[in-house]
Write a protein that binds this DNA or RNA. Structure first.
Lengths: 325, 325
DNA sequence: CCGTGAATGTCAACCGTATGACATTGCTTT
DNA sequence: AAAGCAATGTCATACGGTTGACATTCACGG
């Protein structure tokens, strides 16, 4: 691999000039730039990013910590984060925490050791903020984890409200909320629930809440839980699920039992993962603005320091009506 | 951030000793190690990985290039790659090529500039191998892309055979193969097709082949294609689809048309993504050994040079029978 | 013809760690 | 007591690029 020096020699200039051209091109004459470009091409030169990072004391890496890569919602997040990072010339260091607090902390250490430009974290772990330090920006998505850490979220409260409104509008009488994951303080899912409950009560209905502690998103063990739920609440005709997988499980269960969706039971999911459109019946759901969130989170890191960063930024959600309601 | 030198000073030794301890601990006395550890703890020291990489001329990064992160199959791949990388002390640099040849090449450049320890690529682009150089191992998964590049794949040929056998065994008379992506030379999907066709012919049946050029995996525009296919081939009672999404689309279409699955039409998918179990009816599919492939690919990079690397390594697939057959 | 400013060059230090060569110290062996 | 060896220290250089301070060159306007 050729070095800066070799390029400089071949172009008949000094390393300083070449380095200048790489970093502040406006400071070097166009004709010189051309010469250097030529030399670079001839040598097939590529700047060593590692050396650069060492010198600059910061890298072009962005750390992304997610609980799962396999979960369809986070898969969407990962894909769009990667796209925006790449568009800004940054590289994505993917970290899958599997909801383990220790892993999250370890990842932070690793990211710090690699001088990342920033970290974006979708943590579902309690109080992770206190165990972590970094001299680069940290952005939390999908949850407010600490007053000191900027968060970029969806308007989950409104998501819950929209779901409530739709179920009532469709004439549901016994309406349940079904939560498929752990609910932590500040977590988006708890907002959904609040919005849902509040709106329902505002319309004079009392929601039935079923919260199920399950700390793996990819779990497929929902059938039993749904079963026992329906056994104790036989008259349910409207269900708002905290994610689309759960909604699919709900529909699956219903169909198996001969309960018709949407005629006997209306189901709303959350996230609008690919599955929602593909399922039969297709699933009415609340779409999160994953693209906007990703874009904003990445930009916040890339332009860190240039402008003040709001403590929390909220993007609107969108109700996607499909066959399940 | 404290440096090696500061640690050395505090521990009353020299940087050489500290560095030795980090790299060849057997060369330094246990009591000294203890002293140094203590100093590190007191200073909350973390080695600067960037500086390390520069000095060693190689990093602990593994580049993973996939066409999509959102596609459930690749999401599985990403998740397990990350897990094995992390287990080996490596970090995953995720690159999403979106099937674009240019992006793949750019990513290779970027990875080279970052001195990655190796690259794992799931490329669906023609002849990518020729446009790319790297002085680190390259492992291709899901496809043989070049004789010069080791490939780690599933036994897709047998996957096709298993599907053929099952459909025949279940009594299907008119059997179709349905391909949802581009088929390139060496690609796993083409192996599936070959195995499927060959086995079917061996049993005296002539398969109906429907190949559909579509270069986005996440596309949901299958319904029209399926529609026109069924219009021209009304008697189909067995379908082998090149991926689970497609199988789901097939079932969705059938149900809409009043064709019962599995009674009137038996459907087999491929990959065994989460959706397959969740769909209604759940989808019979061929499971690829994603874990094994990931494990093997990562290990190949981590232990590169220690042992010879076979040109291609093939892991068995497994037929998962569910409700759709 | 001088002053000015842009474009480069020169020099050197620095980022934090690795490592080879060789010297020193002190303890064990025989 | 001399030799042998393990454990460290000393010193210096390398990895490849960045950057600040300052000097030099050269063209251009007045």
């Amino acid at each position: 691999m050729p070095t800066l020096k070799e390029v400089a020699d071949r172009a008949g200039v000094t390393v300083t000039t070449v380095s200048r051209m790489l970093n502040k091109p406006e400071k070097v004459h166009p004709s010189t730039i051309k010469k250097i470009r030529q030399a670079m091409r001839e040598l097939d030169y590529q700047p060593n990013e590692i050396a650069r990072s060492l010198s600059k004391k910061t890298s072009n890496f962005i750390g992304l910590i997610v609980p799962s890569a396999r979960n369809a919602f986070f898969a969407k997040v990962i894909e769009s984060m990667e796209r925006y990072s790449a568009a800004c010339g940054y590289k994505l260091l993917l970290c899958v925490s599997n909801h383990e607090r220790k892993k999250e902390i370890d990842y932070f250490g690793m990211l710090r050791a690699n001088k990342v430009a920033g970290v974006i974290i979708a943590s579902h772990t309690q109080d992770i903020a206190e165990s972590v330090t970094l001299d680069a920006p940290i952005i939390s998505i999908d949850r407010v984890i600490s007053p000191a850490i900027s968060a970029v979220c969806s308007d989950n409260f409104n998501g819950g409200r929209l779901a409530a409104q739709l179920l009532v509008k469709k004439g549901c009488r016994q309406i349940a909320y079904f939560n498929g994951g752990v609910t932590l303080k500040g977590m988006s899912a708890s907002q959904r629930q609040q919005g849902f409950e509040q709106e329902l009560r505002a319309m004079g209905r009392e929601p039935i809440i079923q919260t199920h502690l399950e700390d793996r998103f990819i779990s497929m063990k929902y059938q039993d839980i749904i079963d026992s739920f329906f056994a104790t609440h036989p008259g349910i005709d409207g269900a708002f699920c905290s994610n689309d997988i759960l909604a699919a499980e709900m529909i699956r269960f219903a169909c198996k039992k001969g309960i018709r969706v949407p005629e006997d039971l209306r189901v709303i999911g959350y996230d609008d993962i690919d599955l929602a459109e593909l399922y039969l019946p297709s699933i009415t759901t609340i779409r999160q603005a994953v693209e906007d969130i990703s874009h904003y989170a990445v930009e916040s890191i890339v332009h860190f320091g240039e402008r003040p960063m709001p403590a929390t930024t909220i993007f609107p959600v969108k109700l996607i009506e499909r066959e399940s309601t």
